[in-house]
Write a protein that binds this DNA or RNA. Structure first.
Length: 602
RNA sequence: GCCGACAUAGCUCAGUUGGCUAGAGCAGCUGAUUUGUAAUCAGCAGGCCCGGGGUUCAAAUCCUCGUGUCGGCACCA
C-alpha cells in the first residue's frame, strides 16, 4: 500500500509538502487510523467543494475542516440547496473521484492571494485569519482552494463517503454575521467501516430519549400546550418520583433543609439581584394589580428570603437550603430539544450560606456528592471551571478572588478540571459538571457556583464571634442540574432499560388465567408495601401476547403466576435479557425486590 | 432567533400529474376463547388531512402567514 502522507515531528505532512521541504518520516497509509482519516476527510471536504462549485458556479467557500465524526464545508451560493440536493452532490463527487485528479500544491504570497480571490468575500475573511505572508493553494482538476492541508495525493482515493446533513452556520461562529450553508459528511478508508458507522448512528437513534420517552409513556409534548413545556405521563411520574425520593434522603443526610420559594417575585427584587438587567431577556414577566412580577428563572432569590427570615450566628453556618425548584426560562425556539432543552424545568437546587473559611470544604463536599451520584449511574463526566462572562455584576477583584477560591479547592484536592473562559454565571464563577451521553454528546448537568455578589446586593449578614456583622458567601449548586435533562440522559444511557431502583415499574405480574388474578393482586399489594410498583397484565389476551406486551415496556422483572405458583406460594421469574426462567418463593421474591430497590443510596 | 426540512387516526406510516366516500398495521372498544413463557379469532369504532387566509369548477396535494417538530448554527440546566 502506498503512503498518503507522513508523520514528521508528530505532525501530519502530506506528500506534496514533504516533497517540497524534503521531509521524511513514518508513512501514513490509507486506513482508518486517526491520522489517515484526518487526511482523507479533509480531502473529501475539498472534493465536496469541487462538486458544489461545478453544480453551483457562484459558490464561495469559507472553511472546510474535519471534525470529531467527519468533516464539513461552509459556503455560500445564491441557489437554494436542500436535503434533496445532497444525493446530487454525492454523485458529482463520485464522478470527479473517478477521474482521479492529482491534488497539487503551490504557494503564493498573501498579496497574490488577496488579488486572486478579490471577488470572493469569504476567502477574504479566511485570509484575514492567516498571519503568515505566504499561503498554500491546493489544486485538483480545474478546482483550486486556499488551504493549509494536509491532503491526499489524489482524489481517486476517495470512495467511501456520505454526505449526512445540511445546515446553516454563522460565518465565524458569530450570530451577528451572515449565515452560510454547511454540509456535513463522513468518509472512511473502506466500505465496511462506512456501513458500520451508519449502523452505529441508526442504533444511537433508537436510544433517543424522545423516542423511548414516547414508547415507554414517560413524557410528551403537545403543540397546543406550547413548545418546551413537558407533560409528565404516569410512567415518567413514577420514575421521577423515585429519583426525587432518593435525592431527598441524600440531601437530608448531608444537612440540607427543604424550603420553597414562590414561582414569581416582584420585579424590584430581580433588579436588586441583577437578574432583571442581566438575565431579563430569558425571563417571563406579568403584572398583578399594576405591579410587575418576574417568574423565577432561578431559585436563589427565594432562598435568600428564607435566609433573611431570621438572624444567623457564625455558629450556625453553613446553612444549606434545597428545593426541587421549578424554573422558567425563555429558550430560543431553535434550542428546544426534547427533555434536554425546555422552557420549564425543575432543578435539584440548593444554596449553601457559609463563612469564607468554609468555602473549600463545602465545595469539596458538593464535588463528593456529585461523584457519588454520577458513579451510581456509571456516568463519565468532567468538570469545567467557568470564569467571568461578558455580562456580569460585581467587582473584578471579587471575581478574581472567587475564581481563585474555586481553583484552589479543586487543586488542593487533586481534582482535574478544564477552564471555560467566560462561561460563568453573571453573579459568580462556577464549576460545571458535564456528562457524556450515549452518543458521545456532552451535556451540562450539575453546577457549583461561588457567589460573593448576591450576598452583597441583598446585604446578607451573620453575627461573628465579636458580635460584628459579617457577610456570608453563597454557593449555588445543582447536582442533576434538572430532572428533565437528567432523566433524558438517563433514558439514553440505559436505552430505556432502567435499573430496578428507578424504573417506573419494578415488576410485571402476569396471571395465567382469571383464577390467578387474586394472587397477582395480593403480590402487587405486597410490592407496594415494600416500596415497589407493579403492574398486572390480566387483559383478555393470550399468555404469549401479554408476555410480549410486558417485555416491550422494558420492565426489569417479569413474573408469571398460575396454578403451581398459587398453590406453592411461589412466583415464576422470567429474565428480561436471557428469557430464562426460575422459581422463587414469595418471600425470596419480595426480599430480592426490596434489596434491589434499597441497594442504591446517594 | 438564523439556515434547511417536515406536519394525514392515540402511535407508525400509505395516499399517483390537484379529481369520486382519505387507507393499512399496531393500540382502543365488543364478543368468542381461559391460555404455562415474545403477537388467538371475529366484529366495531376512530380523521376540521396542524391552524388562518388565498388560487381553482375542484385542495390532504399548489401559494401565503402562523404554530409545532426534526437536523444544524448561535445560546444554555
Amino acid at each position: 500500500m502506498n503512503a498518503i502522507a507522513i508523520k514528521h515531528n508528530d505532525e501530519i505532512i502530506d506528500l506534496q509538502t514533504a516533497k517540497e521541504l524534503g521531509f521524511e518520516g513514518e508513512q501514513i497509509h490509507l486506513d482508518n487510523s486517526p491520522e489517515a482519516l484526518e487526511v482523507l476527510r479533509h480531502s473529501t471536504a475539498h472534493l465536496m467543494a469541487q462538486a458544489i462549485k461545478s453544480l453551483y458556479p457562484d459558490a464561495e467557500f469559507y472553511v472546510g475542516p474535519t471534525v470529531k465524526e467527519g468533516f464539513y464545508y461552509d459556503f455560500k451560493t445564491s441557489a437554494d440547496i436542500g436535503e434533496g440536493d445532497l444525493k446530487k452532490i454525492e454523485k458529482q463527487m463520485l464522478s470527479f473521484a473517478k477521474k482521479k485528479y492529482e491534488i497539487q500544491k503551490y504557494e503564493i504570497s498573501m498579496e497574490e492571494a488577496r488579488e486572486k480571490f478579490k471577488d470572493d468575500h469569504l476567502k477574504q475573511a479566511v485570509l484575514d485569519m492567516i498571519p503568515d505572508d505566504k499561503v498554500s493553494i491546493y489544486k485538483q482538476g480545474d478546482f483550486e482552494d486556499l488551504c493549509r492541508g494536509p491532503h491526499l495525493p489524489s482524489i481517486g482515493l476517495i470512495r467511501n463517503f456520505k454526505l449526512t446533513k445540511i445546515a446553516g452556520a454563522y460565518l465565524g461562529g458569530d450570530s451577528k454575521n451572515e449565515m452560510l450553508t454547511r454540509i456535513y459528511g463522513i468518509a472512511f478508508a473502506d466500505k465496511e467501516s462506512l456501513k458500520a458507522h451508519m449502523t452505529m448512528l441508526a442504533e444511537a437513534e433508537k436510544r433517543d430519549h424522545r423516542k423511548i420517552g414516547a414508547q415507554m409513556k414517560l413524557f410528551t409534548f403537545r403543540e397546543e400546550v406550547g413548545a418546551g413545556f413537558p407533560i409528565w405521563l404516569p410512567a415518567g411520574g413514577r420514575l421521577r418520583a423515585r429519583l426525587e425520593n432518593l435525592l431527598f434522603k441524600a440531601h437530608r443526610k448531608r444537612g440540607y433543609e427543604p424550603v420553597r420559594g414562590p414561582e414569581m417575585l416582584r420585579s424590584d427584587l430581580w433588579m436588586t439581584s441583577g437578574h432583571y438587567q442581566n438575565y431579563g431577556e430569558n425571563m417571563y414577566f406579568t403584572k398583578i394589580d399594576e405591579i410587575e412580577f418576574g417568574v423565577k428563572p432561578m431559585n436563589c432569590v427565594g432562598h435568600i428570603k428564607v435566609y433573611e427570615d431570621e438572624l444567623h450566628s457564625y455558629r450556625d453556618l453553613p446553612i444549606k437550603y434545597f428545593e426541587y425548584g421549578v424554573v422558567h426560562r425563555h429558550e430560543l425556539t431553535g434550542a428546544l430539544h426534547g427533555l434536554f432543552r425546555v422552557r420549564e424545568f425543575t432543578q435539584d437546587d440548593a444554596h449553601i450560606f457559609c463563612r469564607a473559611d468554609q468555602i473549600e470544604e463545602q465545595i469539596i463536599e458538593v464535588v463528593d456528592f456529585v461523584d457519588k451520584i454520577m458513579s451510581t449511574f456509571e456516568f463519565d463526566y468532567k468538570m469545567m471551571v467557568s470564569t467571568k462572562p461578558e455580562k456580569a455584576v460585581g467587582d473584578d477583584k471579587v471575581w478574581e478572588v472567587s475564581t481563585q477560591a474555586l481553583k484552589n479547592a479543586m487543586d488542593k484536592n487533586n481534582l482535574v478540571y478544564e477552564i471555560d473562559e467566560g462561561g460563568g454565571a453573571f453573579y459568580g464563577p462556577k464549576i460545571d459538571i458535564k456528562i457524556t451521553d450515549a452518543i458521545g454528546r456532552e451535556w451540562q448537568c450539575g453546577t457549583i457556583q461561588l457567589d460573593f455578589n448576591l450576598p452583597e446586593r441583598f446585604k446578607l449578614e451573620y453575627n461573628g464571634e465579636d458580635n460584628d456583622k459579617i457577610q456570608p458567601v453563597m454557593i449555588h449548586r445543582a447536582i442533576l442540574g434538572s430532572f428533565e435533562r437528567f432523566i433524558g440522559i438517563l433514558t439514553e444511557h440505559y436505552a430505556g432499560e432502567f435499573p430496578m431502583f428507578i424504573a417506573p415499574t419494578q415488576v410485571a405480574i402476569i396471571p395465567i388465567a382469571d383464577t390467578h388474578k387474586e394472587y397477582a393482586k395480593l403480590l402487587s399489594d405486597k410490592l407496594i408495601d415494600i416500596g415497589a410498583d407493579a403492574e398486572i397484565y390480566a387483559k383478555n389476551d393470550s399468555l404469549n401476547k401479554r408476555i410480549r406486551t410486558a417485555e416491550k415496556t422494558k420492565v426489569p422483572m417479569l413474573i408469571i403466576v398460575g396454578d403451581e405458583e398459587v398453590e406453592g406460594k411461589t412466583v415464576a421469574v422470567r429474565d428480561r435479557r436471557t428469557r430464562e426462567q426460575y422459581n422463587l418463593s414469595e418471600e425470596e421474591f419480595l426480599t430480592l425486590i426490596q434489596t434491589k430497590i434499597n441497594e442504591v443510596n446517594f
